[in-house]
């Protein structure tokens, strides 16, 4: 057999270095490849999210338009008709002269009609808050808080340090924020058993910050359960649509707390 002149030690060194380079480049390429794939997937998902956001925006917009139409119809048609009915009853004089039965009837009918008028006004106001459209978010929130405060169901403290910004907000953003606060107040009244709520509005670095807190029973330990509820899903989709984010504090036994951060849209 022919003797080879190769030096076995050089071969070992070459083998080791060669394999090291091979494995290192293999790992490097697989890292690059996987990250590239991931980026493409993220890009695709981002596009999907954008599309879903657009759809959500369209749904919310049409929902608001429909609410506005129903609210106006209720206010203008039903409200006016019922007011007319009240006038008619007031004007009606029985032929046999005034008797007690007729007076009682007129009185109770007028009370019922007044209640209907008030309810219709409240419902139409809830469906389409005119204050929001004509006087801005700050006025609408103040008005809503005043109504709740007067009802005695809850004592709300409103601390508004963002008046100027709130007046200039586009209607889509202010409607979303108004609906979110409305939902939060609704949740507090219905589920928390709280006696006090606090709303703090302020601006910082082109963002509106809303701190909402109540002294009720707070959230359960499993926040995921809360997120599945209709109310929270509503809040989430409204906020998502205006690119706002929120953070919830888990149950601490100190009530409910949510912090909302909304970018101020550029005009």
């Amino acid at each position: 057999m022919q003797n080879t002149t190769d030096n076995i030690y050089i071969l070992v060194l070459l083998g080791m270095s060669g394999t090291f380079l091979l494995v290192a480049s293999f790992i490097f390429f697989s890292v690059r490849n996987q990250n590239k794939l991931l980026k493409q997937r993220q890009k695709f998902q981002q596009a999907q999210i954008e599309h879903q956001k657009e759809l959500l925006g369209a749904i919310i917009e049409s929902q608001e338009a429909e609410r506005k139409r129903i609210g106006q119809d209720l206010h203008d048609d039903v409200g006016t008709t019922v007011s007319g009915l009240r006038l008619l009853i007031e004007m009606f004089k029985p032929t046999g002269g005034e008797d007690k039965n007729h007076q009682d009837f007129t009185q109770s009918t007028k009370t019922i009609i007044d209640k209907i008028v008030k309810d219709v006004r409240n419902i139409s106001h809830n469906l389409s808050p005119t204050t929001l459209r004509y006087y801005g978010l700050a006025a609408a929130i103040t008005e809503h808080c005043t109504i709740i405060n007067q009802s005695g169901k809850l004592e709300i403290t409103l601390d508004n340090n963002a008046k100027q910004v709130l007046e200039q907000l586009p209607i889509s953003t202010s409607t979303a924020l108004y609906r979110v606060l409305e939902e939060l107040l609704n949740n507090t009244i219905k589920h928390s058993g709280a006696s006090k709520a606090n709303i703090d509005l302020r601006t910082e670095n082109d963002h509106i910050y809303i701190d909402y807190a109540d002294n009720g029973k707070g959230l359960p330990a499993n926040i995921e359960l809360v997120k599945k509820g209709m109310g929270m899903q509503n809040i989430e989709s409204r906020l998502l649509n205006i690119n706002a984010t929120y953070s919830l504090d888990p149950y601490m036994g100190k009530g409910f707390y949510i912090k909302i951060e909304c970018p101020i849209p550029k005009p």
């Binding site: 076995i8 071969l11 070992v12 083998g15 080791m16 394999t19 090291f20 091979l22 494995v23 290192a24 790992i27």
Partner: peptide
């Protein structure tokens, strides 16, 4: 990286 690179060394 370790076991592939040192395989030659283990063998020899």
């Amino acid at each position: 990286l370790y076991y592939a690179s040192c395989l030659f060394m283990f063998i020899f």
